[in-house]
Simulated assay, not measured.
Amino acid sequence: MTENLSPAAAAEVDYRVLPKISLHDHLDGGLRPATIVDLADGAGHTLPTTDPAALGAWFVESADSGSLVRYLETFDHTIAVMQTADNLARVAREFVEDLVADGVVYGEVRWAPEQHLRGGLTLDETVEAVQAGIDEATAAARADGRDILVGQLVSAMRQADNGLEIARLALRHRDRGVVGFDIAGPEDGFGPARLADAFDLLAQNLFPATVHAGEAAGLDSITEALAVGHALRLGHGVRIAEDLTVDFDAGLEDGAALVTCGPVASWVLDRQIPLELCPSSNLQTGAIAAFGTRLDQHPFDLLYQTGFKVTVNTDNRLVSNTTLSDEMALLVDAFGYDLDDLLALTLNAVDAAFAPLSVRIALAEAITESYDGLTG
């Protein structure tokens, strides 16, 4: 472990130099505003403004509504410019370039191919285009001495009826860049059971799934993600905290609170099912409304201190105007974390990655060595 890495020392670190793992990051939520402006005219799409800075601000303001439904509406503008192979490849390339600039060494980019067919592409062609952009960016990074591994998480839209087709798509590309499956879109009222046949097919083929749950919907959505979706990770999963009872008057040493887990929380905790927590996004969408409206009221620390396998993620870098470095800085400021905490959270993400064990072991060793080097 690292030594003498107090919260004050952590706050002085340039977080961009810390090696990071990105597990929950949407392709259509990570475009550069200037790219959207550049591509919109050719796509025949009208934007709220053609000034990149003003457009970036518009996305954040529109998403900061406390409603997941309103939050999702902002994606109409990004998806509109992602309907050709060239545009998809460019967006994917720049997406990875921005990860590299933020110090990410392993990333999983999730996106829904079925939303990118308006220009005549087939599902397979969309996946191939995104992979081409990923490959170009990773090769350029490697040539510059900055190694990064990036895999695709193919998502099915939960309100549509294409789950089985998208699951088959993911399986066709499992050895060509796709590392996992997800479902996205409006969570409340569109549970994983709607796509049960897709999840069953994936499980039968030993292909990993992460499921958005415990964000706009509560504990039942988490149970369904685990029981029906065979989820190995929970996308967000933050509302698992609603199944915790905290007793501040338990008489424990040092005034510590006694935390009691309900049945769903116990299952997730005992089996160390990873939570893909996205602090800034959770504030924007109202996912933590039961706990508060400020980052220091986010149950992130409660879950971390209780022993849940929590990971730090951005969700959508454009609409939250954030990076993984920013999210780390916010957590240090809100909860007084030191670099040992940031290392522990990063290693949680390594463990949770949909990568071979040999890759995860190498990542863990390299990341730990990098953190150790910060103290000489």
Rank of each mutant, 00 (worst) to 15 (best):
P33H: 09
L345M: 15
A184Q: 09
G237M: 12
A80F: 00
E128P: 01
S155Q: 03
V332W: 03
V69M: 10
L357T: 14
L23A: 04
D338E: 12
C278T: 15
T223N: 14
L27H: 06
P263I: 03
E242Y: 05
F75A: 08
H26M: 04
V246H: 07
F300P: 00
G66V: 07
A352T: 04
N316H: 13
T260R: 03
G218F: 05
L149R: 14
E369V: 07
T293R: 13
V104M: 09
Q284T: 04
H45Y: 09
V211L: 10
A366Y: 01
H212D: 09
G151K: 13
D301G: 00
A184E: 11
K309F: 02
F181E: 05
A132Q: 13
W267A: 09
D247L: 07
T285V: 15
V60G: 00
V312T: 15
F354R: 02
V312S: 10
G251T: 09
T323M: 12
T49S: 06
A329W: 01
A256K: 12
A156G: 15
P274Q: 12
G29I: 08
L149D: 14
A355W: 02
R16D: 11
D326C: 09
D197Q: 15
R174W: 06
D25K: 01
N205K: 14
A196V: 11
G286W: 03
D38P: 03
G180T: 11
D38I: 08
F248N: 11
V310Y: 02
A241P: 03
N313Y: 06
I240F: 12
H26S: 04
H77L: 04
A216T: 03
H212T: 08
V312C: 07
P356C: 12
Q204G: 15
D200R: 15
K20M: 02
E125V: 12
A355S: 05
E365N: 09
T122R: 05
L68Q: 06
G376I: 01
P186S: 13
V60Y: 10
A364S: 14
W111Y: 15
Y304I: 02
A184N: 09
E125H: 03
R110H: 13
A54I: 11
A256H: 08
T46Q: 11
V359L: 05
P186I: 07
E242P: 06
V60D: 05
T74G: 08
Q305A: 05
H236T: 13
F354H: 10
G237E: 11
T78M: 00
G307H: 00
A141P: 05
L258E: 11
D220C: 12
A193L: 06
A11I: 00
A137I: 04
T260V: 00
V238M: 08
L302W: 00
E187H: 10
